[in-house]
Write a protein that binds this DNA or RNA. Sequence first.
DNA 1: GTTTCTAATATTTTT
DNA 2: TATTAGAAAC
Length: 754
Amino acid sequence: MNLNELNPMQRKAAEQLDGPVLILAGAGSGKTRTLTYRVANLLEHGVKAWHILALTFTNKAAREMQERIERLAGESATDAWIGTFHSICCRILRRDIEKIGYEHSFTIYDEDDQQRVIKAILKQLDIDEKFLPPKSISAAIGDAKNRVLNPDEWLKNSPADYRSQKIHDVMTEYEQRLKAANALDFDDLLMKTLQLFLEHPPVLQYYQQRFQYVHVDEYQDTNYAQYQLVRLLTQESRNLCVVGDDDQSIYGWRGADIRNILDFEKDFPDAVVIKLEQNYRSTANILDAANQIIAHNEGRKEKELWTEDGEGEKIALYSAADEREEAGWIASRIRALNRQGISYGNMAVLYRMHALSRVLEETMMRAGIPYRVYGGTRFYDRKEVRDILAYLRVIENPADDVSLARIINVPKRAIGDSTVDTLAQFARQNDMPLYSAVAAPPDTLPARAKKSVQGFAAMMAGLLIARETLPLGEFVQKVIDEAGLITQYEKDADNNEENQTRIENIREFMGAVTEFEQKSEDKSLFAFLENVALVTELDNQENVPNYVTMMTLHSAKGLEYDAVFLSGMEEGIFPSARALQEENRLEEERRLCYVGVTRARKLLHLSFARRRLLFNQMQFNAPSCFIQEIPKRLIQEEWSSPAQSSGGGWGSYGGTGMKPRPQYGYGDTVPARKPAVNGLNIPGVQRGFVASPARNINVQLFKTGDHVLHRKFGKGVVREVSGTGENARIAIVFPVFGEKVFALSIAPIVKVEE
DNA sequence: GTTTCTAATATTTTT
DNA sequence: TATTAGAAAC
């Protein structure tokens, strides 16, 4: 390790080993690098890795830090604890959770489990879901836990109305049920760790002694519980180094309290504050834009990024007729950039919400661009996978009622709702978990039902024994076999594609188990389940080199790409409709925009659609107010030709037909921040535009998906037909030559059978 | 108890 | 749009 590889400020941060340190690190200022060198420096100064703790928010960040530290410091770093808040807490709890009345083999409930519990409680308390939507209750529960309040305390801090009272009731029952099920939700992982520390000083002392040097990444995203944890841990040593950027605080909705970073100097008056403002990532133009955007926020720590780099390209802004055309433009740009030598892996398309990804995805697929979508529905969220997991969870923790209820009749084994209700009631009356009722079914059950239940109980008992003797992989296989999880789909798998994929998913799950068994040190069932709960499969994915990355702005934090596309830059989408209603939320959206802009190294593209079909509703949204916050001198506008209506034209980008049309200045025609709601309120922006013509009528000869033969390029598939008359264009994807666009009237093509 | 159809309903961001 | 909850039919 050589500290000369750092700039003066970074070096200062890496050398300031003792006492409280606040590193205000702007985007792209080498934050991780600095932190990495600091840890390496600690090791070099003889600090044992064992004494080092580094907390991050995402697994991605944790893994990256781990790898980089090991690369820099080698073997000596392996004993350091580097992980997300949640995984570190899980580790701590696993050792001592019994002290606060849970069992060692606790289960982690995710949102889905949480929802199930809440719904069951609503039913039990006879509360209408319309009156109290389960989502609003889980939000309240999360809110309470983020602020470290128990249900009673939460009620005191809420409006004294009937609604709060009811939420409180559900909350209380929720806590009891989770406790009874020996289960913790995500927030509990933090809360219970805190509780453990507060109620058992020796445990706290142990970790205080152990973690002599504590680092927190993305400190601006910490919530109150996390703040408390960090404070407790560093009370004695006072060696706390936090890194963050108040301008990148984007998790306020999850309870992150930006004051934690803003008030760090109040909490630690002797803190050394270091600002990293030199940016090593982006061109001057991109930084300029980012600085200008974020300057619109109030109440931030003043800082301005600068770079030694040149101006670079201007920011491309594209106004699309609709969302398909927007996607088309992005795809065409990506292909053009790829031809210019930027690899797909160095490009990313970002959007405000997952719902926007679908059109983009379709377009990428058609254009033959390799891509990866991050997030969205996860592998482990698939029904069939969750079913297996539920089995495993019951085996690890038989008190887990939610999982047991899920699988008691999966696959179908003639244990219907009424039977389960009877069992659940019996269990509740006797104050025992559902599993006990299943293991010893009451005589009140009809004989047939009882027999089914006994059969199920016998199978589970067998699995519980098998678990003691078999290694993880074999055991999971046995569960799948015994329970008949694959068999249930095999019956008509041949003529049922859905069942086929389910079976494949189960096989894939087995693959994941095997992989875990090979890679992980701790091969226990508990460790596996913890991994599934806290680590998404995306985190495990190696950086796939040549794929365009598509993801939400939130998950893009911490990443960087040569070329970045910010899509859906529209009022009501980004900033989101909700943010437009509350002024203080808009600042967070702006920070999110700042995060997005600063992901780009060389090229930044912004795009919006004048018309967008979203959630099956046509929206006419004004361009995002954030676009106006970028000085015009930094922007190169590109406008879709009005003649090319829906979906047209992207294939021709860089060739003919698409010319910049800067005469339509957007800035002056756009009413500031006016939410456009579902087409009812068509904002003034529409005025400057030529109305898009109706969809073409005379192009039915060829349609998307048709197979055609071209005289020169051979066989291909029609991707799109657009325009009318002489302007009609047809886009065809050829296996070898890629996508080509022809004038329909003269193209030498014929329709062929597949 | 199980299957199949219809209808409703919800859509921000994540560990 | 797409998934899922609920009702009716089997």
